[in-house]
Design a protein around this nucleic acid. Structure first.
Lengths: 260, 260
DNA sequence: TTTTTCAGGG
DNA sequence: CCCTGAAAAA
């Protein structure tokens, strides 16, 4: 028996919205100690998504037996949209489940919505991802990053990121012109979340597919800041910290031509 | 001579938008005492629409002679869209009219827009609808009802409604899973319009085509609340009260299989 | 199906 | 006040 109760539906709603454009089907792994984890790779195998929701993310969490819940994220999304952000949300599954039960409660209005989603068997390549050291780590407001990623996509399908000691430079160039955005490290004393922090071992120059960055950036509503870890020619890590968990994206860089 | 002047065009605009997806052609009946009434049935003869606009709905209303104005709602809609919501709107017709004159005035801007719509002869089966007693009556915020109707349609083309003493249960089941939404009667003291009221003589279990409910729900902008009257196997009534009139939908339930 | 408009949330 | 997501229109 799995029973995970969220204090509000908004977290789960946003998570699924942040993932479903990259991946259609995926397995939710449930265990008493680890809570709910998920790992999925997009069809082009360029973007890997890793989600962890510790039991502490839940108002109540119980999982008698490890479960793998194979879900169609499009269907899950349809169901989650039927709940309001402030509703209590509970996920329920039997020990050998055919279905996942999704229950919303709006205590004020005395409304209870209950949905049963069919589960599916999904092939899962669960990779173990080593926590590697990167050449640089950047932390910035996720909305800032989202804006750059979205804006630059109007110029090109590739976004180049150059990191030096105290600045990050985003560059794109395409038919209508070229652009660069330079963000300098700084500390915002009023609101630490507005600070931009750069830790650098080695300067970095990487290029990503703008399409993937735009998918990643859909998670911006989940956390005020995003931490980006980059190394030349190595998949980058984009991490959105949740309270008691995270949503991480691993994105392989573009590897072409002039970036020798 | 008919001359009906609305204080603002928005009512008429919304009404036509709420109807035109169900019915293409229909007769507007005008009389000095009754104002404007309309009755129309959709092509599948499952949904009947009944509109009443008392003379009191108008800022000024005069109708020397009873008229039947046969209109193409698509054309009427196109014309109405040319007026702003805050414009004065006047409908004018001669005693033996070939055309309906639609006049918008924006006094502030000194703009006058005038349109003449061709009238048509339309066969009308005007049914007399007796005000029957139903087994239950539900009043709830029209936006709540709209959300349930629209959301549940993502699950199935049929929506089942079960009413018991103090709750309404909406149920749908389809390929991706099943869902139910239970709304309990309650009184909102802060905002009475948010209350949910259930009057029940006999519990009810009816199923409707989700398509029709989605058409009905287009009227949600016309009234804050909707009153739904249901009886097993009998057409349901969905009423949106207007000030000095109403828009009512009569919808025949689906009648199949296991609902004996 | 794509684009535009409108309503709700941050 | 701005932005985002959902519904209507083309």
């Amino acid at each position: 028996m799995l029973e995970g109760k969220f204090e509000s539906a908004s977290l789960m709603k946003r998570l699924v919205e942040a993932i479903k454009d990259s991946v259609k089907l995926c397995n939710f792994n449930c265990s008493q100690t680890k809570g709910i984890t998920l790992q999925a790779i997009d069809d082009s195998r360029v973007l890997l998504i890793s989600l962890k929701l510790d039991p502490g993310c839940f108002e109540g969490f119980r999982c008698d037996k490890n479960l793998v819940l194979g879900l169609d994220l499009e269907s899950l999304s349809k169901v989650l949209k039927q709940g309001n952000n402030e509703d209590y949300l509970t996920l329920i599954a039997e020990d050998a489940p055919d279905n996942l039960l999704v229950v919303f409660e709006d205590p004020k209005k005395d409304r209870i919505s209950e949905f049963s989603l069919k589960l599916m068997d999904i092939d899962s390549d669960v990779l173990s991802i080593e926590d590697m050291d990167h050449d640089c780590s950047i932390t910035l407001p996720s909305s800032d990053f989202a804006k750059v990623a979205r804006d630059m996509r109007t110029l090109s399908e590739s976004l180049q990121i150059l990191v030096t000691k105290d600045s990050v430079k985003f560059m794109a160039s395409g038919p209508i012109g070229t652009g660069s955005v330079i963000i300098k490290a700084h500390t915002d004393l009023k609101d630490g979340k507005e600070s931009i922090k750069i830790d650098l071992n080695k300067s970095v120059n990487v290029t990503f597919g703008a399409k993937y960055l735009n998918d990643i950036v859909k998670a911006s509503t989940l956390a005020e800041t995003v931490t980006i870890k980059l190394t030349n020619k190595i998949p980058a890590l984009f991490e959105f910290k949740l309270q008691g968990g995270y949503l991480r994206y691993y994105l392989a860089p573009k590897f072409d031509e002039d970036e020798e």
